[in-house]
Design a protein around this nucleic acid. Structure first.
Ligand SMILES: [Mn+2]
Ligand SMILES: [Mn+2]
Ligand SMILES: [Zn+2]
Ligand SMILES: [Zn+2]
Lengths: 155, 155
DNA sequence: ACCCTTAATGAGAATGGTTCTGATTACTGA
DNA sequence: TCAGTAATCAGAACCATTCTCATTAAGGGT
């Protein structure tokens, strides 16, 4: 224990230090409009000449996700994608399988459906996972190069 | 090439051979009511004295998933869970975070919402991923032991 | 029952995203 | 300036899943 006089059991709001790496990460994320993986962001930082460890990128992103500063979606392949929030409100996404472009979706309909359906079965603490995938208008017609989400049937 | 007289380019319906391993897997899955992971099923098979390789279990399960004979859900931790279908129709699940019990949900509401929402944004080939998680009535009150899905906020 | 083609199996290696480790660095308030 | 400790990072570890490929064994044809 140090010279701190914080009493036992008392919550201490962690002080986030602004490091060069964190600043670089925030910049990169701000400059990025669409969903990107931790690895992609790490690569981007390297290309910018910023030396940031991969673990640091992962840590930074999950912190941002925790504070709600970035949204996350999981690809079918188990990779996590991140992008900065347009809103802090609860919402879902419509992601383009080809280019990663994503629309923020606010669905009162599903919210209501999820809640009532869960309750109808006697379940409590109901949470829901909802993501829409598709091909955006811009990507339609152009030969698709790399697809993020397999064209698997709905689940 | 062999003595087969199948013409080039002609589709051949793959013949699924009923092996001891496959039979054991089907048995295990039939005896299992709730969602289980490939590893859990493999362990179950071992306990039954059946020698089945892990890779075989994985292959078997993904085949069954492909033919629609089993449903799958992904846990937040990137693990796939399987269970036999009650229906072959498209549907979703309400899964208990504690015991894995799952209710089959048929949601015309979300189906409609997903389609119209996607189209409204000019997206095509829309698919959706919808899963509900909660705590079932039976598990409520009893000290939870191992939780499958982190109590993360909705996504 | 025997053959033959080839689907299926399985031990172990490989994959790949993510997390952990432990020593080192560098914010920041005082 | 300095102590305290948050943060970093290279690399190892994790872990579910997939791949390799030599070996086994369905099962239709005979
Ligand atoms: Mn929602
Ligand atoms: Mn559906
Ligand atoms: Zn697109
Ligand atoms: Zn339960």
């Amino acid at each position: 224990m140090g010279s701190s006089d914080v009493r036992e059991g008392e919550e201490v709001t962690a002080v986030a230090r602004m490091t060069r790496q964190r600043a670089a990460l925030l910049d990169a994320i701000d400059d990025q409009e669409e969903f990107r993986s931790a690895q992609e962001i790490h690569r981007e930082l390297q290309q910018r000449g910023e030396k940031v460890g991969l673990a640091t990128v992962y840590r930074g992103l999950q912190r941002l996700a925790g504070t709600g500063d970035v949204d996350t979606v999981k690809t079918g392949e188990g990779e996590n994608l991140y992008r900065r929030c347009a809103t802090r409100e609860h919402h879902h996404h419509l992601v383009c399988r080809v280019c990663g472009r994503a629309e923020e979706i606010d669905g009162p309909t599903v919210e209501e459906w999820a809640r009532t359906t869960g309750e109808a079965y006697g379940f409590a603490d109901i949470t829901h996972e909802v993501e829409l995938f598709g091909t955006c208008a811009a990507c339609r017609g152009s030969a698709s190069v790399s697809v993020r989400q397999g064209s698997s049937p709905d689940s």
